[in-house]
Amino acid sequence: MYKVKSIENLISQLTKLPGIGRKSAQRLALFLVRSSKEEHQSLIQAIDQVSKKVKQCAICGNLTEDNPCSICQDEKRDRGIICVVEQPRDVIAIEKMGKFSGLYHVLGGVISPVKGIGPGEINIKGLLERIRKGKVREVLLATDPNPEGETTAMYISRILSPLEVEVTRLAIGLPAGGDLEFADDFTLSQAFEGRRKFTWSN
């Protein structure tokens, strides 16, 4: 079978990327072969910069180039509230919304008994240290609304119970734009439990 060693090597490196199978990797590799030297250099440089500059924030665990990150350094943010998320991508989603002005804590994963991920493998210790230092009045648990996210939220709320801090959880219920008739029983019951006073304005 005809093979070009360097292209084969590039394909095998690309297949390591999430969601990239051999066929997609082959397509990307052949695209790169046809690209100009300048484009190669800028891609190599971008990867090099990420590997050299990006690190985890020593306070919140988010990805950053400065340590501590710009959110942890920002004096204008409310230091009394910490939003606990699973991954740095969740910080991006919440920041995009633009309505949260507190700080974050990135766990770097979730407790998953089925996959063998225990509390020791995620950044809960750092959260406890931050709360023990004082000033935090509320911890907002924003893990995903699935069994693993719920297990993590339950565990954190249990270990925070002796500390004087209010623990809140993101609301679970019907998604905006969805049809009520297609909602499952659990989501619907959560939506009923979490109903709130409806106000209107002229």
Binding site: S112, P113, V114, P147, T151, M154, D184, D185
Partner: peptide, 26 residues
């Protein structure tokens, strides 16, 4: 959906126990 086992999902110890049973089976 037939059942989500809501009482298991509400309790940390029960959820971890169910996860253990699932891991054994898997």
């Amino acid at each position: 959906l037939i059942s989500l086992f809501p009482e298991i999902k509400k309790d940390l110890l029960k959820m971890v126990s169910a996860g253990y049973l699932a891991e054994l089976t898997a």
